[in-house]
Design a protein around this nucleic acid. Structure first.
Lengths: 226, 226
DNA sequence: CATGCGGATTGACCCTAATCAAATAATTTT
DNA sequence: AAAATTATTTGATTAGGGTCAATCCGCATG
């Protein structure tokens, strides 16, 4: 891990993000004051479950995987955060202890916001508090979605749902590139890689073609009723 | 459904709850101003997924089940709220749309806080915002726990974990009464009732005795390593 | 172009939990 | 207390995925 100063491009990315965009520029600046960035290799651990964390993280580039460990060492993914997303914010209000492990799923650069300062600002400034509230809501809903999908959908259905979530409304046929390795996608969907693979091949019969990272959909309808 | 005025006992319960306890009395009063209570029979629906909700709910007595519906009509429980807990708060920040269905799992009385007013108060008052933040964090962590357990633990392990969560530290043997029907517990743990039953009988060999709603543990150690 | 590596796929097998059906409790009603 | 419901348990069967092993593919490397 190397630490860096924020570049002006980094700042632009930050200010554009959902979290900062809603804040007055001065407030955003105040939060970022003292913030540094750090780079990590794939597989590096940013923090571990139950250990103290002193930052809230913003993904400047790369990908982070949040997961919990089972007694037997198995890993359960809680969430995956691409560029532009914030994570680790809940530790701020839980004695600064992480609720999960965070690992770079690709070469990674994150901005590290000082969590004590941010917490303090949230306690003084309703704009900041508001932004945090919406962030927490958003994350909460994501986990809820995840839990519901796990409990309601089979593997092919979860994959279909994931694909559809990338399909702009109205199009019946389109294609896109997976934003990360199938490996990671499998984890995010709560599947073993093999199961993801099989799910894809199951979906072939509904007009889904997979070539490397590129997914092509011929028939949206078919996918929806899967 | 009948609507009632809050009794003074209701107010006491409210003020004692985690959410209100941290607020200055005047602030709490302000939130409660205009709040009414409503009673519901078992199985009544309080609100449905994706429909508008204008309240945040506080359970005064009884039990609420939050769940999502699958396309096939199957239900996936997201959470269960006993007396003293708040739910429905995330809709406030998601266009006032519920993310799940809420159903009375027993005869129920809830206090209905006006969500627009509460949201407004949160926007003006950092104490209120703070209380909401902690509530959201807490709920977020619960769903996260749930997701992780689903993905990491087998049915008997989830049941063991549930039992242990009711066992005061240090005791090696104790007993308690399930706070709701096995039915509901099964849903909460993401299991079919049959699976819960089988899990219990599996745990018998680790010193767990089940008599009606009463669970007795003979050997905490054994449970922990299950 | 051959080589090697890691990710992805496929096959075989197994285990967990869902489902369906039936038998037993437990509760509530009468 | 008998009858009628409503929970819960148990048994049998099955579907869905996990795991392990082998193979394949894509891509970087020499």
């Amino acid at each position: 891990m190397k630490t860096l100063r924020l570049t002006s491009n980094d700042r632009a990315v930050l200010f554009d993000s959902r979290f900062f965009a809603r804040l007055p520029r001065a407030t955003a600046e105040a939060i970022l004051d003292g913030t540094i960035a750090s780079t990590h290799e794939e597989h590096d651990i940013l923090f571990r479950q139950d250990e103290p964390v002193d930052h809230v993280f913003f993904v400047l580039s790369g990908l982070v995987r949040l997961y919990r460990l089972g007694k037997d060492g198995r890993e359960a993914d809680i969430a995956v955060f691409p560029k532009g997303e914030i994570f680790g914010e809940n530790a701020m209000f839980l004695e600064h202890r992480a609720t999960a492990n965070a690992q770079a799923a690709e070469p990674l650069i994150v901005a590290r916001l000082e969590s004590r300062k941010l917490r303090q600002l949230a306690a003084e400034n309703t704009d900041v508090a508001q932004a945090l509230i919406e962030l927490l809501c958003h994350h909460g809903k994501m986990t809820e979605d995840c839990l519901a999908e796990d409990r309601l959908l089979t593997a092919p259905q979860r994959v279909a749902s994931y694909i559809l979530s990338h399909c702009p409304d109205g199009l019946s046929s389109f294609s896109f590139r997976l934003p990360f390795q199938k490996n990671v996608l499998a984890g995010k969907l709560g599947l073993a890689p093999e199961a993801l693979s099989r799910a894809f091949s199951m979906l072939r019969q509904s007009g889904v073609t997979v070539k490397g990272r590129v997914i092509e959909i011929r028939d949206r309808q078919a996918l929806e009723k899967f």
